[in-house]
Amino acid sequence: MLELFSKLSRKRTSKDVAKERLKLVLIHDRANVSPQFLEMVKGEIIKVIQNYMEIDEEDLDIQLTRTQSEDGEGVVPALIANIPIKSVKNVGR
Rank of each mutant, 00 (worst) to 15 (best):
V33C: 10
N32I: 07
L22N: 00
I45H: 03
I45W: 04
I46Q: 10
V25S: 03
V91R: 07
Q50K: 15
T65D: 04
K7A: 06
K11S: 09
M1Q: 06
D59I: 10
A81K: 09
N90I: 05
S69D: 02
Q68T: 04
L60P: 12
S87A: 13
P77R: 02
Y52K: 13
K7M: 02
Q50L: 02
R93M: 01
F5A: 14
P84W: 13
L38M: 15
A78I: 13
V48T: 14
L8H: 09
E54V: 08
I55H: 06
T67M: 15
A31P: 13
V48L: 12
R12V: 06
L2D: 07
I45V: 14
F5L: 13
E54K: 04
M40C: 06
A18E: 05
T65H: 03
Q63A: 15
M1E: 07
R30E: 05
S14C: 04
L60W: 09
L26N: 14
S87C: 07
G92H: 14
V88F: 02
E3T: 08
I45L: 08
R10E: 14
N51F: 12
E70V: 07
E20C: 09
Q68Y: 00
N90K: 04
E39N: 08
Q36E: 13
I49A: 08
